[in-house]
C-alpha cells in the first residue's frame, strides 16, 4: 500500500504538486516588487492620453490617428514589459533556487524534475498573465474614455455639418473599430503567447547555462533572431536564385528550423491599424505557442533530468 502511494506520488505532472510550485514561484516573484512597474505603466497610459496630433484636415482625419497613437504607445510598453520580465524572471529562477538552497530541499523530496520545471514556468507565466491583465484593464478604461470622448466630439461635429446618416454611421464604426475591441484583447493575448514562448526558451537556456546574464543576453538574441529569421530566409531564398553561396542559405534554413518565427505574433501592428483579428488567427497562434512551450519545457527536462548540483 505504502509502495503504491509512493508510486502515485512520484507520477509526473501531478496537478496539485505543479500548482504548489507554480504558486510558490508566483509569490517569490511578487515579492520582488514587479507590480511597481504598473504605476509606471499607468503614468505612461495617462500621458499618452493627452498626446495630440497636428491637426490640418478637420477633426474627421485626426480622431482615428490619435487612438492609434495611444494604442501603439501602450501596446509597445506592454510588450516590452512582458518580454523583459519573462526573460529576466525565468533566467533568475533556477540560479536563485540554487543560491537559496530551495532547489536541494525540493529535489530531495519525491518531486520529479519535470514537475519542478513545469511549476516554475507556470508560475512565471501566471505572473506575466496577471500583469498583462491589469495593464490591459487600465488601457481599456483609458481607451474607452478617449473613444467615447472622440465619438461625442466628432459625431456632433458631423451632425452640425449635415452629414448623411450613412456617413455618420460609418464614422462611428471607424472610431469604434479603433477603440477597445475584442481584436484588441486578442492582440494582448498574442503578446502573452509570445512571452510564453520566449519564457520557455529562457528556461531551456537556464538549465545548462551557468550565468544568469548569459541566459538573459542569449534569450534576447534568440528573440531578435526569431523576428529576423523569416526575413533572412526570404532574402537568402531570393539571392540563392541569383546564385549566392550555398553556405549562408543552409545556415538560414537551419536557423529557421531551430528558432521560433516570432514575426507571426506581430499581429498587434495590424490590430492597432484597426484590422480585426480573426478567431482562426487566435486559435492558430495559441496552438503554435503551446507546441513551442511544450517542446522547450520537455527539452529543458531532458537537460535538467540528470544535472548534478
Amino acid at each position: 500500500m505504502t509502495s503504491q502511494n509512493s508510486k502515485t506520488s512520484n507520477r509526473w505532472l501531478q496537478p496539485r504538486r505543479v500548482t504548489v510550485i507554480a504558486m510558490h514561484t508566483f509569490t517569490q516573484l511578487v515579492r520582488m516588487k514587479v507590480f511597481y512597474f504598473l504605476s509606471v505603466f499607468a503614468l505612461i497610459v495617462i500621458a499618452a492620453n493627452f498626446l495630440d496630433l497636428p491637426q490640418f484636415n478637420g477633426p474627421e482625419a485626426i480622431g482615428v490617428g490619435e487612438l492609434q497613437m495611444l494604442k501603439s504607445t501602450c501596446m509597445g510598453v506592454m510588450k516590452l514589459f512582458a518580454v523583459v520580465f519573462v526573460i529576466a524572471a525565468t533566467a533568475l529562477l533556477l540560479p536563485k533556487d540554487v543560491e537559496d538552497r530551495t532547489l536541494y530541499t525540493i529535489l530531495a523530496k519525491p518531486v520529479p524534475r519535470l514537475d519542478y520545471l513545469v511549476g516554475k514556468i507556470a508560475g512565471v507565466l501566471l505572473l506575466v498573465f496577471v500583469s498583462l491583465l491589469l495593464m490591459d484593464l487600465l488601457m481599456t478604461v483609458v481607451l474607452s474614455f478617449r473613444t467615447n470622448h472622440l465619438l461625442v466630439d466628432q459625431l456632433s461635429w458631423a451632425e452640425a455639418r449635415g452629414w448623411t446618416q450613412e456617413a455618420i454611421d460609418s464614422e462611428r464604426r471607424d472610431i469604434i473599430a479603433q477603440g477597445p475591441t475584442w481584436s484588441f484583447q486578442g492582440a494582448v493575448f498574442a503578446i502573452f503567447l509570445q512571452s510564453a514562448i520566449i519564457g520557455a526558451v529562457a528556461l531551456l537556456l537556464s538549465t545548462f547555462s551557468t550565468s544568469t546574464l548569459f541566459t538573459i543576453i542569449l534569450s534576447f538574441l534568440i528573440y531578435l533572431i526569431g523576428h529576423f529569421q523569416a526575413d533572412a530566409a526570404d532574402y537568402y531564398k531570393a539571392t540563392a536564385e541569383a546564385g549566392s553561396n550555398a553556405f549562408t542559405t543552409t545556415m538560414t534554413k537551419l536557423l529557421s528550423l531551430i528558432f521560433p518565427n516570432f514575426q507571426l505574433f506581430n499581429v498587434i501592428d495590424a490590430v492597432i491599424e484597426g484590422i480585426p483579428m480573426t478567431m482562426n488567427a487566435i486559435i492558430s497562434l495559441t496552438g503554435l505557442s503551446l507546441f513551442y512551450v511544450v517542446l522547450y519545457t520537455m527539452l529543458s527536462w531532458f537537460v535538467f533530468s540528470d544535472k548534478e548540483f
Binding site: 492609434q68 501603439s72 501596446m75 509597445g76 523576428h227 516570432f262 506581430n266 498587434i268 501592428d269 492597432i272
Partner: peptide, 8 residues
Amino acid sequence: ALGGLRSV
C-alpha cells in the same frame, strides 16, 4: 521594429 513594435 524587428522586435514587433513597428507601430511604436
